[in-house]
Simulated assay, not measured.
Amino acid sequence: MTTHSSSSWTNFKDAISKGKFAGNVNTSTSGYQSGTAGLDCSGFVGGAAGFTAKLGTYDLASSTYTATIAPSSIQIYDIYVKAGDHVLFYTGDAGTTISTREATTTGDDKAKAYSRTKSFLSSQGYSLRRFNGF
C-alpha cells in the first residue's frame, strides 16, 4: 500500500506552496488522500496530542495551548518549540542530549527519532512547553 503521491511536488513545503493541504488521512484503499502533502512538524505534534484542528508552531508556543515549564519538570511528550520554525516531542534524557520524536519537511518527510543536544535547542531559541491540561 502506498502512502505518498507521485504528483508534481518535491517535498512538503513545495506541495503547500502549490495549494495542497497538510495531512495525509488514509481514507481510501490506496493509503493516500488526494491533494494532501503529508504532515509537517506541528501537524505531527498536534495530531499525536489529539487536537482536532491544525495548529502551527506559533499556536504551540502560545499560552492558549501550552505553558512554559522548567527543565527540572520535564516529562516525556513535553515539547520544545521555536515559533515559526519547528516543534518536537521530548522522549528521554541522556545527560547533555535528549531523545526526540519529530517530523521533518526535508529528505524523506517522515516522523523520526532524533538525538539533540540541550545546548543546541537553547542556542536556537527553542522553549520547553507542556500542553495545557496535561
Results as ranks from 00 to 15, higher is better:
residue 44 F to D: 03
residue 131 F to M: 11
residue 98 I to T: 05
residue 114 Y to W: 05
residue 84 G to A: 09
residue 55 L to Q: 13
residue 109 D to A: 03
residue 130 R to S: 04
residue 43 G to E: 01
residue 70 A to Y: 09
residue 14 D to P: 12
residue 121 L to C: 00
residue 18 K to H: 11
residue 120 F to M: 06
residue 72 S to W: 01
residue 87 V to C: 02
residue 21 F to E: 14
residue 96 T to R: 05
residue 45 V to Q: 00
residue 92 G to E: 05
residue 99 S to E: 07
residue 108 D to Q: 12
residue 92 G to C: 06
residue 19 G to W: 12
residue 123 S to G: 05
residue 117 T to A: 01
residue 26 N to D: 11
residue 85 D to K: 09
residue 70 A to M: 06
residue 75 Q to E: 13
residue 122 S to Q: 10
residue 104 T to F: 01
residue 126 Y to W: 02
residue 108 D to I: 08
residue 48 A to N: 09
residue 90 Y to K: 07
residue 76 I to R: 13
residue 126 Y to Q: 01
residue 11 N to Q: 11
residue 20 K to P: 03
residue 61 A to M: 03
residue 81 V to P: 03
residue 18 K to R: 14
residue 109 D to I: 12
residue 105 T to H: 05
residue 4 H to F: 09
residue 97 T to M: 02
residue 95 G to A: 09
residue 61 A to C: 07
residue 70 A to P: 03
residue 6 S to V: 13
residue 26 N to H: 08
residue 48 A to W: 08
residue 39 L to P: 00
residue 8 S to Q: 12
residue 113 A to V: 15
residue 128 L to Q: 04
residue 38 G to L: 01
residue 54 K to R: 15
residue 55 L to N: 12
residue 124 Q to F: 00
residue 90 Y to R: 07
residue 114 Y to A: 08
residue 86 H to T: 09
residue 116 R to D: 04
residue 75 Q to K: 15
residue 79 I to Y: 01
residue 24 N to R: 13
residue 81 V to A: 02
residue 8 S to K: 13
residue 57 T to R: 07
residue 24 N to E: 06
residue 33 Q to A: 02
residue 44 F to S: 03
residue 134 F to L: 08
residue 123 S to A: 07
residue 38 G to S: 03
residue 51 F to R: 05
residue 33 Q to C: 01
residue 42 S to R: 05
residue 49 A to V: 04
residue 126 Y to P: 00
residue 96 T to Y: 02
residue 47 G to V: 07
residue 89 F to H: 11
residue 55 L to Y: 13
residue 20 K to H: 12
residue 56 G to S: 15
residue 34 S to G: 02
residue 128 L to M: 05
residue 74 I to M: 04
residue 32 Y to R: 05
residue 16 I to S: 04
residue 85 D to L: 03
residue 99 S to W: 10
residue 34 S to R: 04
residue 2 T to V: 12
residue 73 S to E: 14
residue 117 T to F: 00
residue 30 S to F: 07
